[in-house]
């Protein structure tokens, strides 16, 4: 692409890298040190502890019982983690993936210089982000309630049947997905917008003069130019999407919906930590094993992500 004006490889840097002693880079190391120092102080010990905790059974108050690898065997055999994983995947595919794609499109629309009232739109899309989750839960329950919900009243008013939103597995999953979409849309829009502001307006103008249409500009300028941001959203969006918890928790009053249909991996972990409405006996050992299970899934996804995005990047540029 000729539009990519900036060199992304830095040939001179590689040469100097070999010649200088490590100590001459002290400024660089100092600048990135806070993260590693804080992680060493506040992350490492808890991490070791979390390894230990996964070999015991503990309700968080009484005595710990050493159980060896039982918690991991339970993780693989009880079926709870597997069903939580599949719930998570369903919610991820129906909520997180569409919202990122939609937000990318909306950001492209909202960053166009000619659009009137774009400030108003940006603000309105951002509102769900700041609306307290307590209020959001009340609103969504009031909207989707089977008997008393505004949506079902509306459906009946126009002669349609009521939809059993929150009393069926798929209905509940759907409402959770809608809620996630609604809540995180503005978040992704802001991230994409901040990336798009690094694109020099002159690039757009040159392309327009060349007669390129909006779609072509989006594909050939916007996407390649904000590729690092897209990568960032792909990685963090996958991590947060697979750790979804708040929406199912508040929508189902901490119970997990019909047949635990919206119990995600994180929900399951918090449930065993005693943090949701108690439908299982608290066991921090099992909760920790679930935590390691989530970790394994995320690492696997990160590897896949890196491959896919790496390939895309080559295709794009």
């Amino acid at each position: 692409m000729t539009l990519m004006t900036r060199p992304r490889t830095r040939p001179s840097a590689r040469q100097t890298l070999k010649q200088r002693s490590v100590w001459t880079y002290w400024r660089e190391y100092l600048a990135i040190s806070p993260f590693f120092i804080l992680f060493a102080v506040f992350g490492l010990f808890p991490l070791v502890y979390a390894l230990y905790l996964s070999t015991v059974s503990w309700d968080g108050l009484g005595k710990m019982t050493p159980v060896g690898f039982d918690q991991f065997i339970r993780l693989f055999t009880s079926g709870e983690f597997q069903s939580a994983l599949s719930n998570t995947v369903v919610i991820f595919l129906t909520a997180q993936v569409p919202v990122v794609v939609a937000a990318l499109g909306a950001a492209a629309l909202l960053s166009s210089r000619r659009l009137a009232a774009k400030g108003l739109y940006q603000t309105l899309f951002f509102l769900p982000q700041v609306t307290s989750i307590v209020a959001v839960a009340i609103v969504f329950q009031s909207l989707f309630s089977n008997e008393y919900g505004i949506i079902n009243s509306g459906l009946q008013a126009v002669g349609l049947d009521k939809v059993p939103w929150l009393s069926t597995e798929w209905g509940t999953r759907l409402v959770v997905s809608i809620m996630i979409f609604w809540r995180s849309f503005g978040y992704f829009v802001v991230i994409f917008l901040s990336g798009m502001s690094s694109i020099p307006p002159s690039l757009y103008e040159a392309a327009r003069l060349d007669g390129a249409g909006s779609l072509r500009i989006f594909r050939s300028i916007t996407i390649p130019m904000i590729w690092p941001t897209i990568l960032f959203v792909a990685v963090t969006g996958t991590i947060s999407g697979f750790q979804i918890f708040t929406e199912p928790q508040v929508l189902t009053n901490g119970l997990g919906g019909p047949n635990d249909s919206v119990v995600t991996m994180m929900f399951l972990q918090v449930r065993y930590m005693g943090g949701t409405t108690q439908t299982v006996p608290t066991d921090l050992g099992f909760a920790t094993a679930i935590g390691w299970g989530i970790f394994a899934v995320l690492i696997l996804l990160a590897a896949i992500n890196a491959r896919v995005m790496g390939k895309r990047r080559k295709e794009a540029s």
Binding site: Q141, S142, E147
Partner: peptide, 19 residues
């Protein structure tokens, strides 16, 4: 039964709407 749990918006709606 109304199938509404106390301390939920649904319970409040069922009660307020005299159901």
């Amino acid at each position: 039964c109304a199938n509404v749990k106390p301390y939920t918006p649904e319970w409040n709606a069922a009660t307020t709407q005299e159901n």
